[in-house]
């Protein structure tokens, strides 16, 4: 039986930019899929297709068992969408925003009003409920946007980079809400640039790059492919690289001997995948000290999106460059609109 969200072979091109190049997804009911990838990878375009905002050039998708292309209106009844840029009317108060959305979900005025009150309370916006949303902080806006997506408690939720640009406290608060949602049985597709976030929230992760799903699995499976944690050492002198490499190789997975340790000559940086955490760090320092290697810096690094990318594709996520190019064309209208409206 196909999951609550199911997509097969989604393709979408904008001019000569291929945003989606055959995306397949399956999200079982009540689970969370994290769509992980850099800007321009096709995350937002995927969400836009699944939420009926964009017609794919080819491929098919169902949400809550309903065909996205055949029955868009029924699909809209069953989904909530929370965007990357908080889509609330800034001149309306929080309460007015939620009431409006409720009524547009075809709720009666009174029911929409009650529901707005509940959600404002739940999202700690009650005090600001009757202020125009433009007076809200970034975190408050994001919460209001999320509340708007939850007005009818839709069985399937889409969240496009829900925490991008949020400070750590607000990010944590949003994570808590998301976990609560999922424990209530909601199926969630979440896009993110942060491995940590996907790690935290998602049952399964699909890594996308250039419009394709290039890897999928649980966070542990992906990390295993990435090598998990790594120790990074910057030695003081170039001459120390060789002895340091010998020491570090002892802590590596042992598959390739010295080859486990990657070296950047010009920065005098050595990196080795490890298991064992902070305790191990102390041992490495002791060993290096014992052979007289002087170090400028040492640290334990957790895998980042870049690490996942490097291990999967051999290249970094190219985030900065993509941002400059305004890569994800369908995200256009909101941030920087580079693509003409279809």
């Amino acid at each position: 039986m196909p999951g609550a969200i199911h997509a097969e072979g989604l393709v979408k091109t904008f001019g000569d930019v291929t945003a989606l190049d055959g995306v397949d997804l399956d999200v079982p009911e009540g689970t969370v899929l994290g769509l992980l990838g850099p800007n321009g990878a096709g995350k937002t375009t995927t969400v836009r297709v699944l939420t009926t905002l964009l017609r794919p050039d080819s491929g098919s998708a169902t949400v809550a068992g309903l065909d996205v292309l055949e029955h868009p209106d029924e699909v809209r009844r069953s989904i909530g969408l929370s965007g990357q840029f908080a889509a609330v009317d800034e001149y309306l108060t929080g309460r007015e925003n939620l009431q409006m959305v409720g009524q547009l979900y075809q709720m009666r005025a009174r029911a929409a009003k009650e529901r707005a009150g509940e959600l404002l309370e739940r999202f700690h916006l009650a005090d600001a409920a009757d202020r125009p949303a433009r007076t809200y902080s970034g975190g408050m806006r994001r919460r209001l946007d999320l509340a708007a997506a939850l007005v009818v408690s839709p069985p399937v939720m889409f969240m496009d980079e829900p925490t991008t640009g949020l400070d750590p406290r607000n990010r944590q608060a949003l994570w808590d809400v998301i976990k609560e949602l999922v424990s209530g049985g909601t199926t969630l597709l979440l896009t993110t640039q942060y491995l940590e976030e996907a790690d935290h929230l998602a049952h399964d992760i699909a890594v996308v790059d250039h419009g394709k799903v290039i890897a999928r699995g649980t966070s542990d499976q992906l990390k295993a492919r990435t090598g998990g944690e790594r120790v990074e050492v910057v030695v003081h002198e170039r001459d120390a690289i060789a002895p340091a490499r010998g020491i570090l190789a002892r802590y590596g997975p042992g598959e390739r001997g010295l080859g486990d340790v990657s070296v950047e000559d010009h920065t005098r940086k050595l990196t080795v995948p490890v298991t064992g955490g902070a305790k191990l760090l102390a041992e490495v320092i002791r060993d290096l000290d014992a052979v007289g290697v002087e170090i400028d810096d040492i640290g334990l690094r957790r895998p980042t999106l870049d690490d996942v990318f490097i291990s999967l594709t051999g290249h970094a996520a190219e985030r900065a460059q993509d941002e400059e190019n305004g890569a994800d064309p369908s995200a256009g209208g909101r941030g920087q609109r580079k693509e003409p409206a279809a």
Binding site: R48, T52, L53, E74, L81, V88, L104, Y105, R334
Partner: peptide, 14 residues
Amino acid sequence: MHKGLIDRFRSLPM
């Protein structure tokens, strides 16, 4: 459109 409100509206069963 610019602010993403049209997206919000278009994702609603209205």
